[in-house]
Design a protein around this nucleic acid. Structure first.
Lengths: 197, 197
DNA sequence: GAAGTTTCTCTACAACTGCATGGAAATTAT
DNA sequence: ATAATTTCCATGCAGTTGTAGAGAAACTTC
C-alpha cells in the first residue's frame, strides 16, 4: 500500500558502484549522482543513509562480488590460481579489471584524510580477505608439495597484495585495463620459479 | 621598493608539498592551506596562480627532488642501484619513503577525474622519468654483463614502475612508511636472480 | 618625510555542497 | 471512491568553496 520505487535497487547500486569507481567519492556530488544512477535524493537519504551510506553500500557490493567471484577460487584452488587471479587484473572482460583501477585502492588513497572509520574498515576487510586468500593458497601448495616448502608464505602473500594495488594504480593512471600487465608478468614469473617440477 | 613578503618562498613551498601530500588536493581548502603553510590568499593567487597553480608548484618541486636525488643514482649506477632505490621506498629517513605514500601516486588516482592537463602532464613526467631510469640502468647492466643478456629490459622497467606505485599505495593505506616492504623484498629477490655470477 | 610600490588583511560574492522540508503523485487496502 | 502509506520532486538552507576587490600596512627611493 504505497507508491512503488521508480528504480530497481540492484541495478541502481551497480550504477552507483561504477559512478564512485570512476569519479571518486569527494568529486562526485549528489546532483550528479542522481543523473548518473537514476536515484533521487530522497531515496539516497531514506534508503541508503545519505552520501556516505550510499558509498558504503557500493563498497560492500564491490567487496562481496570480489570475494566470492575472484578471491574464493584462489582460496580453494591450486597454486596456479594465484597467477590466474593476477592475470585477470589485466584481462578484458574480467570483473577485476578496469581502466578506472580498483574502487578499494582509490578509496584507500582518497580516504586517508576523511578518516571515516566505517570506510576504513570496509577497505581493510577487502585487503585482509585478499591476503588471506593468497596465504591459504600458498599453504595448501606447500602441503600438496606444489612449491618449495622452505618458502615463507606470509611475506609472499603480503607482497602480492601490495603488487595488486600497483597494478590497479597503473591501470587507473593510464586509463587502460591492461596497463599493469608487465608487473603481472614479473609476478607470474616469480611464482613459476617457486614451483617444484 | 616594496613591502617584503611575510614568508620564505622555499620554506613555504616545502610545507605546501607536505600539506597536499598528506591531505590530497580536493580535500584541502584554501583557508586550511593558509594555516598549514603560513601563506596568505593573496600570495597564493598572485605568486602561484591560485590553488591549482600552487599544487603544480608543489608537484614540480617534489618531482625535481625525486629525479635529482632518487632517480639519478639509478640512471648512473650499477645494477644493484635499482634494489637500493626500491629499499629506500620503505626505509626510515629516506626522501622517497612516507606514511602518506607518494604525492604523485595520490595525484594520479585522485586526478583521474579532474582531468587537468597540466596536472596529468606533471604526473606522467614523473613516471616516465622513473621508467627511463630503470631502463637505462638495466641496459647498462646488460652491456656490463652484470645480468643475463636475454632479459628484455623494457617490460621489467615498466613492471617495476607499477610495483613502486603499489609500495606507495600500501604505505599510505597502512600509514606506515615501510608497509610495502614485502613487495620490495619480492622484487629485490627477482632482481638478484637476474644477476650473472 | 613624501611619493611610489608591493604585500597583507578583511570583506564579499557567486557557486556549490549535503541535507532537510512540504506538498504532489502513485499505489494498495478498505 | 476514500483513506492510508510510501515515494517523488521542487525548493530552500546553512555551510563551504575558490576567487576577487578595497583599503591598510610596510618597505624603498627620491
Amino acid at each position: 500500500m504505497a507508491r512503488p520505487k521508480s528504480y530497481n535497487v540492484e541495478e541502481v547500486v551497480e550504477r552507483v558502484v561504477h559512478a564512485f569507481w570512476q569519479h571518486g567519492y569527494q568529486a562526485l556530488g549528489l546532483r550528479e549522482l542522481e543523473h548518473l544512477t537514476g536515484l533521487n535524493q530522497f531515496a539516497i537519504r531514506s534508503e541508503f543513509g545519505g552520501k556516505e551510506g550510499l558509498y558504503l553500500t557500493a563498497l560492500e557490493l564491490y567487496t562481496e562480488a570480489a570475494i566470492s567471484h575472484a578471491m574464493q577460487p584462489v582460496r580453494d584452488g591450486r597454486f596456479l590460481q594465484i597467477s590466474v587471479f593476477l592475470r585477470s587484473l589485466v584481462t578484458d572482460g574480467s570483473m577485476t579489471s578496469s581502466k578506472y583501477g580498483c574502487l578499494i585502492v582509490n578509496t584507500g588513497i582518497e580516504n586517508a584524510r576523511v578518516g571515516s572509520t566505517r570506510l576504513e574498515e570496509a577497505v581493510r576487510r577487502y585487503w585482509h580477505e585478499l591476503e588471506s586468500s593468497f596465504l591459504v593458497c600458498l599453504q595448501n601448495a606447500i602441503e600438496a608439495e606444489e612449491i618449495d616448502p622452505d618458502i615463507d608464505p606470509e611475506p609472499i602473500a603480503k607482497g602480492l597484495v601490495s603488487a595488486v594495488m600497483g597494478v590497479h594504480a597503473q591501470n587507473r593512471l593510464d586509463q587502460k585495463n591492461d596497463a599493469g600487465k608487465q608487473l603481472v608478468e614479473i609476478l607470474c614469473g616469480q611464482l613459476k620459479s617457486m614451483e617444484l617440477s
